[in-house]
Design a protein around this nucleic acid. Structure first.
Lengths: 107, 107
DNA sequence: GTCTGTACTTACCTTTTTGTGTGTATGAAA
DNA sequence: TTTCATACACACAAAAAGGTAAGTACAGAC
């Protein structure tokens, strides 16, 4: 029913971004990754309250979305490095606006 | 500001913003509200797939956070209008960055 | 031959978020 | 009298998100 109306609203850029970046962890991970390549263990230290499962899961998510690149060195013990893709780097202004918003809010 | 790593990480501006604006609906509501005052029923039409319960709940949330003002005219049948506060208006650049991000992503 | 370090995987569980359906108040209109 | 419109409350259910704990693989160090 009323397919026209619904269709327009449910596929808007805000929802797209929410799907890509929504949730508790993705933006925090991308923020850490912004200007450096990091290993899983390093991310774990930088975001101490994330569980290993969530970190791996969200990194996989971000890699599947093409925002993060997973570089597996194929060594033993395992060595894997994560970094942003070109598209992933587009989160920067978004993150900066989030920080600005929090600042304004707390002022 | 302290250099305690944990403290910094669990209480950072990104998390603050996530707490205020996270979830499926808040940003969509704020977006509709950006340049106009709206009644509940109007918002319901503009975001057809939100349930009434969620709409009311999220509006209450946003009002409690001081981002939205609830103006109750005390009439019968009820007439209540919602609009952004000054602080609420600070979401604009954030929303615009979300839209820009989606655009870049899809390009 | 046991231990260590790393990046996972899996099963299971709890919490949070979101959705559905129903009920309430009231004045006016039919 | 009945019906309608509006904003919202409440009980409950379903779904999604997140957390815990255990296990896997394997080269090299001990």
């Amino acid at each position: 029913m009323k397919d026209d109306k619904i269709y327009i609203t449910v596929r808007c850029p805000i929802r797209t971004t929410l799907e890509l970046l929504g949730g508790k962890w993705k933006l925090l991970i991308l923020h850490q990754l912004y200007d450096k390549t990091l290993r899983l263990s390093e991310l774990k230290n930088l975001i101490p309250d994330i569980s290993e499962k969530m970190l791996i899961q969200e990194l996989k998510n971000l890699a599947d979305s093409g925002l993060v690149i997973r570089n597996n060195f194929g060594e033993v013990p395992p060595r894997v490095e994560y970094s942003l893709t070109e598209k992933g780097r587009n989160v920067k202004p978004l993150i900066e606006q989030m920080i600005a918003f929090a600042k304004h809010y707390e002022a």
